Simulated assay, not measured.
Amino acid sequence: MFYSLGKYILLLRLSFKKPEKFSVYWAEVMREMVSVGIGSLGIISIISVFIGAATTIQVAFQLNSPLVPLSIAGKIARDSTILEFSPTISALVLAGRVGSSIASQIGTMRVTEQIDALEIMGVNAPGYLISPKIIAGMTMVPILVTISILLGITGGYIACLASGDISPADYLMGVTDGFDGLTIKVALVKAVAFGFIIASVCAYQGFYTSGGALEVGQSATQGVVYSCVMILFADLVITRLML
């Protein structure tokens, strides 16, 4: 375990060494940002709208009491979406989509000896292959989480219009009532941490792949599983420290 942690830290140190040619690294960062951000926007949008709608309906069902104002449902749905559903569920989805792609891409380069060729040519392979992915993850995941929060709240509003369990006016009153900016800060800190975890853990699994196609698939699976576990652990730690 400590040996693997040491290799992980060493790989991160090598990844952020001074680049040989900044323009090449910058182009890779832009390409990875497009891949992570634009490529994941569709699935994040669909999931966010449906989760926001389902959360609002379930909260309305649980608070079906004449003693509880219906606007509370909007407040609970808002805070749940901002603090937990959008950052964590989006990160778990991205771990499956982006993380597996990172691990399989780097793993394939390892088993086909492309990484060895880069190192023979004097290129810092971890820096060229991994640091753009980490930077893109830490940059684009917060943007995707912000979009997810907005769409989740919009999904709750659509659910109010469609179901009639809560009037849209009551829902909007709850959404805007007692808003605390700290919840947004917590969500963004989680998003940055989750983006780093997804990119670095999956890149580590891919970089140290050995064997053939079967091992590449195993590395991708392990990368997704380990990053999901670490996302949940980081979620707990950040929530405890900031709230």
Rank of each mutant, 00 (worst) to 15 (best):
V111F: 00
R13N: 13
G37A: 04
V201S: 12
V175P: 13
R240P: 00
T112P: 02
R240V: 10
V189A: 11
G96I: 03
M30P: 00
S167N: 09
L70P: 12
G37L: 06
V36N: 01
Y208F: 14
M30L: 15
E119F: 01
R78W: 03
L236I: 02
A125P: 06
K7P: 06
T146I: 15
L94H: 09
R31M: 07
A191Y: 11
A193Y: 06
Q105W: 04
L14T: 01
A54G: 14
S104M: 08
P19D: 02
F179V: 14
V49K: 05
F22I: 10
T55G: 02
G181E: 01
I82D: 07
V192R: 09
F61N: 14
I106F: 05
A136K: 08
L161P: 05
G99K: 07
A159E: 11
M242G: 02
A234G: 03
T221C: 06
G155I: 05
S48N: 05
I102N: 08
S210I: 14
I38S: 12
Q62A: 15
G164Y: 14
S80C: 06
D180C: 04
C160R: 13
Y204E: 07
T239H: 08
A169H: 08
I106L: 03
V29Y: 00
G155T: 07
F50A: 13
G212M: 08
